Amino acid sequence: MSGNGNAAATAEENSPKMRVIRVGTRKSQLARIQTDSVVATLKASYPGLQFEIIAMSTTGDKILDTALSKIGEKSLFTKELEHALEKNEVDLVVHSLKDLPTVLPPGFTIGAICKRENPHDAVVFHPKFVGKTLETLPEKSVVGTSSLRRAAQLQRKFPHLEFRSIRGNLNTRLRKLDEQQEFSAIILATAGLQRMGWHNRVGQILHPEECMYAVGQGALGVEVRAKDQDILDLVGVLHDPETLLRCIAERAFLRHLEGGCSVPVAVHTAMKDGQLYLTGGVWSLDGSDSIQETMQATIHVPAQHEDGPEDDPQLVGITARNIPRGPQLAAQNLGISLANLLLSKGAKNILDVARQLNDAH
């Protein structure tokens, strides 16, 4: 009898209710805020589980004197976190989706994509230029951005401005803007500013005609071990179906173009009346040469937790077992079709030249 009692006690200790789920994140304040929001949602869904947040620095956090596009290494903000995932030191990792490459290392998958916040870019102005827009900034004003995508589009749109690289986390960039006289304004992701509670610093939100956004911008991705079915089931509740389908289309477009950090590629997606609209573009580094096109596809946005595919093969690095396969494939095909259209119009040449120029500098 006593033996059975011990077995029952052991089973209770090993039951999922007692389990601590370890969540990996970057150390920056924004990353911690984003991770806290994901953990809060998981806690609400699984009140019996405990969650421990483990923060670590990544290569991208450490190399702050070089433009991201020049470092010449993929997975700048993800490699150390993936290493911890691989060694079973954490069970899942919360990322900004735009930091996750469209091809993940073997053994990993994006197990959830959370509801997207505003994906557009924002302009934050130096205190002396508050009330201005990019259009009304004085001639030769210097605007800071760490992104080739932003610089290429904005140089084309605002030729009277000069664009220079600015690195560091959000706090560091804002301090550089406010305390030094080098920059009249800087460009940042609206979602990051909003998550930090800095709505009052948003001086201008850039519309798609001015600057399309990065693939996955404004959404959070939760990376897990691809074979860890328990954790895949656990994080599945975080999937937002519309965000998922938009981001599958965007990531398929980028992957098929073979774009990345070192080339200016941008997108804009919208879901309306059962249609998914995808606009994508590529630019030369100075913005003088560009190709942009829009395509659409009829896609039914499923309700969360309709029964999805059981075999769960990944699409552009994403596993969404609780979302039907048909809409996911339709979104992926839309991204591939748009990429093929741009490639047929000469996108590869623009991107190759951009890559060579970026590598040469």
Score class of each variant (00 low, 15 high):
Val20Lys: 14
Arg22Met: 05
Gly24Gln: 00
Thr25Trp: 00
Ser28Gly: 11
Gln29His: 10
Ile33Val: 08
Gln34Ile: 06
Val38Ala: 09
Val38Gln: 03
Val39Gln: 08
Ala40Asn: 07
Ala40Phe: 07
Ala40Trp: 10
Thr41Met: 14
Leu42Gly: 03
Leu42Met: 09
Leu42Ser: 02
Lys43Met: 08
Ala44Asp: 09
Ala44Met: 04
Pro47Ala: 07
Pro47Asp: 09
Gly48Pro: 06
Leu49Ser: 11
Leu49Pro: 08
Leu49Ala: 14
Gln50Ser: 01
Gln50Trp: 00
Phe51Ala: 08
Phe51Ile: 12
Glu52Trp: 04
Ile54Met: 09
Met56Thr: 11
Ser57Asn: 08
Thr58Phe: 03
Gly60Asp: 01
Gly60Gln: 08
Ile63His: 06
Ile63Arg: 09
Leu64Ile: 11
Asp65Ala: 07
Asp65Trp: 08
Thr66Asp: 04
Thr66Arg: 09
Ala67Ile: 15
Lys70Cys: 08
Lys70Arg: 08
Ile71Cys: 09
Ile71Val: 13
Lys74Gln: 15
Leu76Gly: 10
Leu76Gln: 10
Phe77Val: 02
Thr78Glu: 02
Thr78Gly: 11
Lys79Ala: 10
Leu81Arg: 02
Glu82Tyr: 05
Asn88Glu: 08
Asn88Cys: 13
Val90Pro: 01
Val90Gln: 05
Asp91Trp: 02
Asp91His: 04
Leu92Ser: 04
Leu92Pro: 02
Val93Cys: 08
Val94Arg: 00
His95Ala: 08
His95Leu: 09
His95Glu: 04
Leu97Arg: 02
Leu97Gln: 01
Leu100Cys: 15
Leu100Lys: 01
Pro101Glu: 08
Thr102Ile: 12
Thr102Gly: 08
Gly107Pro: 03
Phe108Ile: 14
Gly111Pro: 02
Ile113Leu: 14
Cys114Ile: 13
Lys115Val: 09
Glu117Leu: 10
Glu117Ser: 06
Glu117Lys: 07
Ala122Gly: 12
Val124Lys: 05
His126Leu: 08
Pro127Cys: 03
Lys128Val: 06
Lys128Tyr: 09
Val130Lys: 06
Gly131Arg: 10
Lys132Leu: 10
Lys132Glu: 12
Lys132Ala: 09
Leu134Asp: 02
Glu139Met: 08
Lys140Tyr: 09
Val143Gly: 04
Thr145Ile: 04
Thr145Asn: 08
Leu148Phe: 13
Leu148Trp: 06
Arg149Gly: 01
Ala151Tyr: 08
Gln153Asn: 04
Leu154Phe: 07
Gln155Gly: 10
Arg156Leu: 10
Lys157Ala: 13
Lys157Tyr: 12
Pro159Gln: 11
His160Ser: 10
His160Trp: 10
His160Ala: 05
Leu161Gly: 04
Leu161Ser: 06
Leu161Asn: 04
Arg164Lys: 12
Ser165Pro: 13
Ser165Thr: 14
Arg167Tyr: 08
Asn169Gln: 05
Arg173Gln: 02
Arg173Leu: 03
Arg173Met: 02
Arg173Ala: 03
Leu177His: 03
Leu177Asn: 07
Asp178Ala: 06
Glu179Leu: 09
Glu179His: 10
Gln180Lys: 14
Gln180Cys: 15
Gln181Pro: 06
Gln181Trp: 10
Ile187Val: 09
Ile187Gly: 06
Leu188Tyr: 01
Leu188Trp: 03
Ala189Asp: 00
Thr190Trp: 14
Thr190Tyr: 07
Ala191Trp: 01
Gly192Cys: 11
Gly192Asn: 03
Gly192Met: 05
Gln194Phe: 00
Arg195Trp: 05
Arg195Ala: 04
Arg195Asn: 02
Arg195Asp: 01
Met196Leu: 12
Gly197Phe: 07
Gly197Ala: 04
Gly197Gln: 03
His199Ser: 13
His199Gly: 10
Arg201His: 01
Arg201Phe: 04
Arg201Thr: 06
Val202Met: 12
Gln204Lys: 08
Ile205Asp: 13
Leu206Asn: 02
His207Trp: 14
Pro208Arg: 12
Pro208Ala: 07
Glu210Pro: 02
Met212Arg: 03
Met212Asn: 02
Val215Cys: 15
Gln217Ala: 06
Gln217Lys: 04
Gly218Phe: 00
Ala219Arg: 03
Gly221Ser: 07
Arg225Leu: 09
Ala226Met: 15
Lys227Trp: 06
Asp228Ile: 02
Asp230Pro: 11
Asp233Ser: 11
Leu234Gln: 08
Gly236Met: 01
Gly236Trp: 00
Leu238Gly: 01
Leu238Lys: 02
His239Asp: 13
Pro241His: 08
Glu242Met: 05
Thr243Cys: 01
Leu245Lys: 03
Leu245Gly: 05
Arg246Gly: 10
Glu250Gln: 09
Arg251Ile: 03
Phe253Ser: 03
His256Asp: 06
Glu258Met: 03
Cys261Ile: 00
Ser262Cys: 02
Ser262Glu: 15
Ser262Asn: 15
Ser262Ile: 12
Pro264Ser: 15
Val265Gly: 04
Val265Phe: 01
Val265Ser: 01
His268Asn: 15
His268Leu: 10
His268Pro: 04
His268Ala: 13
Thr269Gly: 03
Ala270Thr: 06
Met271Ala: 03
Lys272Cys: 06
Lys272Thr: 12
Gly274Tyr: 01
Gln275Thr: 01
Gln275Arg: 14
Leu278Arg: 04
Thr279Gln: 08
Gly281Ile: 02
Asp286Gln: 11
Asp286Thr: 09
Asp289Gly: 08
Ile291Glu: 13
Gln292Thr: 10
Glu293Trp: 14
Gln296Thr: 06
Ala297Ser: 06
Thr298Phe: 06
Thr298Leu: 08
Ile299Asn: 13
Ala303Ser: 10
His305Thr: 00
His305Phe: 01
Gly308Gln: 15
Glu310Val: 03
Asp312Thr: 01
Asp312His: 12
Gln314Phe: 13
Leu315Ser: 15
Leu315Tyr: 00
Thr319Trp: 01
Ala320Asp: 09
Ala320Val: 10
Ile323Tyr: 10
Pro324Tyr: 07
Arg325Tyr: 07
Gly326Pro: 11
Gln328Lys: 13
Leu329Ile: 09
Gln332Asp: 07
Leu334Cys: 13
Gly335Cys: 08
Ser337Gly: 11
Leu338Lys: 06
Ala339Val: 10
Asn340Gly: 11
Asn340Asp: 12
Leu342Asp: 02
Leu343Met: 15
Gly346His: 05
Lys348Trp: 14
Ile350Thr: 02
Leu351Thr: 13
Asp352Trp: 09
Val353Gln: 15
Gln356Phe: 03
Gln356Ile: 03
Leu357Ile: 14
Leu357Tyr: 10
Asn358Ile: 15
Ala360Ile: 05
